[in-house]
Amino acid sequence: MNIFRLCGDMSHLAAIIILLLKMWKTRSVAGISGKSQILFATVFTARYLDLFTSFISIYNTCMKVFFIGTVYFTIYLIYMKFKATYDSNHDSFRVEFLIVPVGGLAFLVNHEFAPLEIIWTFSIYLESVAILPQLFMISKTGEAETITSHYLFALGSYRALYLCNWIYRYYAEGFFDLIAVVAGVVQTILYCDFFYLYITKVMKGKKISLPA
């Protein structure tokens, strides 16, 4: 464990807590993409299959349980409890255009052609594009609530911090995982446009409103 990875995990934790607070306090899921949350649930389920078979640390297990638990709770809030406030018309990204290519790529490019390894690789590739339905929804509605912007900033920062973690691990431990790094770079690049808007607008107290 290193400071970059710890900050990354804390940023990820903060993102999930911000999202839950937004939903619980406003009792609304307006502006939140249910499809992205379903993709995140798929990512965590696929990646944490070893939750019961390999123990790494209390921290690792607790975080995995928390991430899986909260993402399914988020889906429950979106599609059941606060269903009336879910904006399905704007949440129209065709996720099959993500899952099929990512699934195919996981079969072709992986560290080892073994079931658990391919599923892990699928979760890594899927995570890098899982935010697209959410960003697409914001571009369609033309704006994002400030709290949603904070959620996205924390979520984008988490993988950017993981990139720092991988740089550190390469020099400190000689550790390098090309698949995780490439997917992490793609994932972070997808947020760049949003990071620019967040820093130039939200930091100055304005709302993010894309030219519709």
Binding site: D9, H12, I56, M63, H111, Y162, F175, D177, A180
Partner: peptide, 10 residues
């Protein structure tokens, strides 16, 4: 050299 995969990460 096959690098160890990042399974200890979240």
């Amino acid at each position: 050299k096959q690098w160890p995969s990042s399974k200890d990460e979240l």
